[in-house]
Design a binder for these strands. Sequence first.
DNA 1: AACATAATTGTAATGATTACAAATTTAAAT
DNA 2: ATTTAAATTTGTAATCATTACAATTATGTT
Lengths: 135, 135
Amino acid sequence: MFSIQQISDRLLEKDIKPSFQRIKIYDFLLKNNIHPNIEMIYNNLTKDIPTLSKTTIYNTLKNFEEKGLIISVNIDEKEIRYDARLITHGHFKCVKCGEIYDFDYNHDKLKIKGLPDFEIKKTDLNIKGVCPKCK
Amino acid sequence: MFSIQQISDRLLEKDIKPSFQRIKIYDFLLKNNIHPNIEMIYNNLTKDIPTLSKTTIYNTLKNFEEKGLIISVNIDEKEIRYDARLITHGHFKCVKCGEIYDFDYNHDKLKIKGLPDFEIKKTDLNIKGVCPKCK
DNA sequence: AACATAATTGTAATGATTACAAATTTAAAT
DNA sequence: ATTTAAATTTGTAATCATTACAATTATGTT
């Protein structure tokens, strides 16, 4: 699916040195489109990397986001979720099962009024509700 | 601006008993459209109510939100902000000064695709960037 | 007034995140 | 190849916001 070479190149594009841990963490985000939080990443990767530290995950994700490699999903006050998908899309979180779904929307039609001289860096469209499985 | 009577009635409409603390907290939210966090509310109200406890503010705001009297603004991972304005609007947070601005957008034009059988409870449009003052 | 119920308060516990220093790894230079 | 320097990772300790909980206070009812 994604070769180590591809992942390394992608990291280098963003000025991130492709260390073993960084490659593994980014690889996990690419392969698992579950918008994981720190805990999920930790639990999954310690199987392969028993010495992995949570501090590394915290630092790595912060670094990834600053460099524009991933985005953070701030849909719930309790936790930050992370997403390697960079094209504009919204997030839906089911309040029952907790799963986060991606959805598309027409960003150009937003017609935002009242922000004439504001410099926009990040736009988040977050929806909460109940998913079909839980209804 | 808002009489105690008006505030009491509004609380009662939402099945919230109008205690002294609840009236004061809601009054503060109505008069100060600054999307305050817990700390801001606490610092401002302890002037008038020296015995006020943070626990009360936490409990009250949770109660208010559950009853649909206010909304929580989850634009920053570090803190929850609160807003008494209920009509649909978006939030812009300046990453430099931290101020949160309201803005309007055309919610009907969102054209959300991919959520056919999802039950939507809450929609948040959050934008981060730099405000005109800080540019 | 006495009782029951609800709300508020203060303190202690929890738990996620961060700071920091030591250890390890990687890269560069000789 | 060995040494040196720099960067990364790790583990522990500290921090700090939030929550749990029990005691106190206030409110309302018979």
